[in-house]
Amino acid sequence: MAGIRVNNLDLWYGDFQALKNVSADFKEKRITAIIGPSGCGKSTMLRVFNRMNDFIEGVRTSGEIIIDNENIINPETDLVLLRKKVGMVFQRPNPFPLSIYENIVFGERIHAEKINKNNLDEIVEQSLKSVLLWDELKDKLNRPALSLSLEQKQRLCIARLIAVKPEVLLMDEPCSTLDPQATQRIEELMRELRKNYTIIIVTHNMQQAARVSDDTGFMLLGELIEFDSTQNIFTAPKDKRTEDYITGRYG
């Protein structure tokens, strides 16, 4: 099981420095929230952990991100293995235009040496159970995933991720398109998943960070201003800028 240790991380998009000398320790089996105003670099930060930033032209990084004793910034990092270990849930639920079943077994199909039908069925059942969708969907597995509700889609995306047995779940504003009830249920799911996974969530929504996370990092203009237990950040912030943000003076 892996935590993520970040040392002196810098990241540039061309000439623009999006992350400035960030250091932090994301502990395993905890939920860490990254908060901050738009454009502060929180999504960028998240996307370094599974190297999704690689697709943007002109990205340069320096520093260290240690996951399982390996610096994943290293160009030789095996991205397939990294992304299996560090999975991501996106802002807009993005199930593939395939059946519910095929969405969940996607990971198995691309990673397994040999496909075993019973094994696939097992994966579907386990994954759907872990996101509490099994009872709702067990008779509709061949339905197109795009016919589900937004909340179901997001759960399905989490199930699809869990099916590849990751260690870290990165969540990029996973509830921003959902209504309050659905958000609440996804948050419950996150607490449930925390028992087995290291979760890092980027959120715009401070109340969400306060409700769901164990640790919180506050970012501003590419810098990690403060990183502490959620309790401390929200009750006794050490930095004036953190205090101003959480009390709603800007952002």
Partner: peptide, 15 residues
């Protein structure tokens, strides 16, 4: 094809 499909597949470790 929405870019999000592609991102989703890559994020699951697809080549």
């Amino acid at each position: 094809v929405p870019k999000s499909y592609k991102e989703g597949a890559f994020a699951l470790g697809a080549t």
